[in-house]
Design a binder for these strands. Structure first.
Lengths: 184, 184
DNA sequence: ACCTGAACACCGTTCAAGT
DNA sequence: ACCTGAACACCGTTCAAGT
């Protein structure tokens, strides 16, 4: 099996899932791939770039899992749950996203994410704004939810899933309908 | 000036404000305090504990800046803005909160934060749930907002303040009134 | 009680050298 | 083009020793 960015990112995610984010280091990752640590730098350039790639995979998976065509409210709800799902599928994913410095064309990715909302009738500004709020909400929840020690105490107290859903629902319902002048 | 947790945390926040989170290390921090790195371990125990203390200072400041008595919606809005303000007052604060492992009595702090909401008529569960959503939203926004490279691109595209306010407003308005059976 | 000085283990990264 | 081996700088942490 040849070594490439794909395999490296996959192995890194696997390593984090098993050992946690603070056990992710270039030597351990290289060992898992049967290679020397310095070999990774041919494919990745930087540990920061590696974490950015890992974070990007969450967004990509969320977008893929989001509803295809729907009203903008339904799409926002769907995407919110999809992004949350993508995060919860991996250990320490939220911390990973928080650490990750934005990669490549952040501008472009944002537009691509917002495109379904624009197609559904929101202005570019309203779409980006609402999307950022939904992403922020999901990311923030995941941060606290994955904070290991917190998890035990708060799981029973609050019920992460229902509470997140309640917050998301409230927010999306609360977003105003696009003003007539704001239509495409 | 004697060395204590207070001064260490303050100096650490100052250092991060000036140099950024990834330049925060025990040696630089010690040097700033005119002391040896190993001396810090008498007062702090751990770098993780230090970051937790730093993160805790944000929550404390937000609680202090929140409205004293108000309806639960108004209090939530006020606290949301206060927490956001506390985060934006320091560089890399959101990443700091994401990294920080919960300190001491997370249970107790959560209750203390939620107390004003309970006094305003929400059930304990509804209060914790709503509060967590507001905190998550503010934290999530701050993560993206402080992501240096992102800041430049997105600042004009979205308008962080208005968009955060819109999301917060929508969410708080969208929270249902407490059911009669759910009253204190 | 509080701090110094020196050390240890670990980690990101580089680079000449190999194939 | 892709990887090894060895090295460098840096950092968290410990601990005996000082005062």
């Amino acid at each position: 099996m040849k070594l490439g960015q794909q395999e490296i990112v996959a192995a890194a995610l696997q390593l984090v899932d098993e050992q946690g984010l603070d056990r992710l280091n270039m030597r351990a990752l290289a060992a898992r791939l049967g290679v020397q640590a310095s070999a990774l730098y041919w494919h990745v350039g930087d540990k920061a770039e590696l974490t950015s790639l890992m974070a990007a995979s969450f967004y990509a998976r969320a977008l893929a899992a989001a509803p295809v065509e729907a009203g903008w409210r339904a799409w926002l709800l769907g995407f919110g749950h999809a992004f949350r799902g993508a995060l919860l599928a991996h250990r320490d994913s939220a911390r990973l996203c928080a650490i990750a410095k934005p990669i490549g064309d952040a501008q472009g990715s944002a537009e691509r994410l917002a495109a379904p909302l624009v197609r559904a009738g929101l202005s570019r500004h309203a779409a980006l704004s609402a999307l950022a709020s939904v992403i922020s909400l999901a990311l923030g929840w995941a941060v606290y939810e994955q904070s290991n020690a917190l998890h035990d105490h708060l799981a029973e107290m609050v019920g992460f899933d229902e509470s997140f859903t309640a917050g998301l629902q409230a927010m999306v319902v609360g977003f105003p309908d696009p003003a007539p002048a704001d239509r495409a």
